Structure formats: structure tokens, C-alpha cells
Computed example of a mutant assay.
Amino acid sequence: MGQLSHRCLLYGAAAVGLLGGCGSPERQPDVQALPESDQERVFGRRKHDAMPLPGGEEVDLSAKTPDGEYVIPADAHARRAHPLTVGAGLMLCRSYNYAEGLIFISFQRELRTFVNTMYRMADGDALLRYAMTISSAAFRIPPLNWSH
């Protein structure tokens, strides 16, 4: 998982202070009606294994097709929310399905990382055409060795 390893994110952040967490329940992205290839273009990931387009472990924002087009489209979620395009810190993110939709959870050292990512997504992320945030929350998570 590269720089977002469990050890780097949690222990590194704990060493410098409090770790931030965010959660935002969202309505289920309604991309199921799209052909699979279009769904993959929206997310910038393959549907069957969630690996970045065109495959491999890491997102390669510079990868191009033989025609010179970016493999991960300019409006794909994987590109719009990537730390290199956002200019913000790293986040560990996960989404979980539940009966009424999807909950997105992220952990980062600073809340501004999440906020900057959301601003970048609001400016053209294809995923936002199919998903709507219905609430959100932010939490401060103290390190394991924190004392009050």
C-alpha cells in the first residue's frame, strides 16, 4: 500500500499528536446502470478487483493509452482525489456498504487534508454525478500513549 501503510499512518501520526478521522454517510453511488467500462472510468479503477486502471498496485497518473489519452480520465475519482493532484496530505480511505447506501471513512493527520480533497472533488469529480453526501462528521483520535 505504499506510503499509506498502517504503520506509517497510525504510528507516525500518533508520534506527532492527534490523528484525525472523518466519516460521511452517502447515498449509494448510482453507477450500476452504466456499462462496466464507464463505471471503471468514473472510479479510475477496475470493477472486478478495484485495482487502478490499467492495473497494478499503485495509481499511475501519467499512464497513457497508445493514442496519447490518459488511462485514468481527468474527471475520474482516482485522479481527482489523489494526493498529488489535491496538494494535500495522505489519507487512508475506506468505503462500506450498508442498507441505505454507503459510508465513507478516512483517516488523516489534519482535517484540512480531507477538506482540500473534497474541494478538489467538487471541481469535476465524475463520482459526484452519481453520489450525494447526506451528512458528515469529523473526529479527533488521540494516540495510544495519550494522557489527559
Results as ranks from 00 to 15, higher is better:
Gly23Glu: 07
Thr65Asp: 05
Glu58Ser: 13
Lys47Met: 10
Arg41Pro: 01
Leu19Arg: 07
Pro54Trp: 11
Asp49His: 07
Leu18Tyr: 10
His48Tyr: 04
Ala50Gly: 06
Pro54Arg: 06
Asp67Met: 13
Asp75Val: 05
Ser62Cys: 04
Ser37Lys: 10
Gly68His: 14
Leu53Lys: 05
Asp75Met: 01
Pro35Ile: 08
Ala15Lys: 06
Asp30Ile: 15
Ala74Asn: 02
Gly20Tyr: 06
Gln32Phe: 04
Gly44Pro: 01
Arg45Gln: 06
Leu53Tyr: 06
Glu58Asp: 12
Glu69Ile: 09
Glu57Met: 09
Pro25Val: 15
Arg46Leu: 07
Met51Pro: 00
Leu18Val: 07
Gly68Asn: 06
Met51Ile: 00
Glu36Phe: 03
Arg46Phe: 13
Ser24Thr: 11
Ser62His: 11
Ser37Cys: 10
Glu36Gln: 06
Glu36Met: 11
Leu61Thr: 00
Arg46Tyr: 03
Pro35Gly: 04
Gly17His: 04
Gln28Ile: 15
Tyr70Lys: 12
Gly68Phe: 07
Pro52Val: 02
Cys22Thr: 12
Pro52Thr: 01
Met51Thr: 04
Asp67Val: 10
Ile72Phe: 08
Pro35Phe: 08
Asp60Thr: 11
Pro29Tyr: 02
Leu18Pro: 15
Gly44Ala: 10
Asp38Met: 11
Val31Glu: 12
Gly68Tyr: 09
Val31His: 06
Pro54Ser: 10
Ala33Tyr: 08
Asp38Pro: 02
Lys64Asn: 02
Ala63Phe: 03
Lys47Arg: 06
Val42Ile: 13
Glu36Tyr: 15
Cys22Val: 05
Gly21Glu: 11
Arg41Gln: 12
Phe43Tyr: 07
Gly20Asp: 12
Val42His: 00
